[in-house]
């Protein structure tokens, strides 16, 4: 597949994403945030980092980068978009995904391996993964505390839009297995059209032979089974 990884000023996981996709044999491009051409990708990656220094609110200023208009047009046509960590924050700020990522309930930056449970196989990003499968994918953020109002949460649940939830090693959800205070243990959601995913965990950091967990590969394999 053709993959475009967007670099905002302050992105710091763009090269990790580039390396994972290019190593897996995909035609991968780096696209600067001021560019207007996405290079006709199948998949756009909004990477992790601290775009615009996280000033005002995480992702709030990145939303006005010229390339985001192109990303929104790509998404409107049904193109795949994956926002990881800061990319998830940007997707909520520009309205492609509902809700908001607030400061972690602990007020701390959390960097650790985290168990996440796949909730549904009904998405291009989890196709072929049995619901209930527990993946070990690192998190590294201070603003990952997912919040949405009651009506919005009900809509996410009713429309099978929650793709990943934080859990323990046995797949159980509890306050102890919720690292950041996210509502309903939400770690990743998809839009109603099921082509735009946002997730706080970093699958690109658990996808190569040199790291302890390779579970992030499951997500990339799901995409490959669909797009090639």
């Amino acid at each position: 597949m053709r993959v475009s990884v967007i670099t905002f000023p302050g992105s710091n996981c763009d090269h990790d994403a580039y390396q994972v996709f290019s190593t897996r044999g995909h035609d991968t491009r780096m696209v600067w945030h001021k560019d207007h051409d996405l290079c006709s990708p199948d998949l756009v990656i909004l990477p992790g980092g601290f775009s615009y220094g996280d000033y005002l609110r995480c992702g709030a200023l990145a939303r006005f980068s010229p390339v985001v208009k192109e990303v929104m047009a790509h998404a409107a046509k049904g193109g795949l978009v994956m926002g990881i960590c800061n990319g998830f924050q940007i997707l909520t700020e520009c309205g492609l995904l509902p809700g908001t990522l607030l400061m972690n309930s602990s007020l701390s930056f959390i960097c650790q391996h985290q168990k996440v449970r796949v909730e549904t196989a009904n998405s291009p990003f989890s196709k072929g993964i049995s619901p209930g499968t527990v993946l070990d994918i690192p998190i590294a953020h201070k603003e990952g505390n997912y919040y949405i109002d009651d009506k919005g949460l009900g809509s996410l649940q009713d429309n099978d839009q929650i793709i990943f939830r934080y859990c323990d090693e046995f797949g159980r959800m509890s306050p102890d297995s919720n690292p950041n205070g996210s509502l309903d243990n939400i770690a990743g959601i998809i839009n109603k059209q099921r082509n735009v995913l946002g997730m706080m965990p970093h699958p690109e950091r658990s996808a190569t032979d040199t790291v302890p967990s390779r579970d992030g590969r499951r997500i990339f394999e799901a995409l490959e089974s669909l797009v090639g």
């Binding site: 005002l56 509902p98 809700g99 908001t100 607030l102 919040y147």
Partner: peptide
């Protein structure tokens, strides 16, 4: 448009 996030 920018300073406040209407969700929160």
């Amino acid at each position: 448009n920018l300073l406040a996030n209407p969700n929160t």
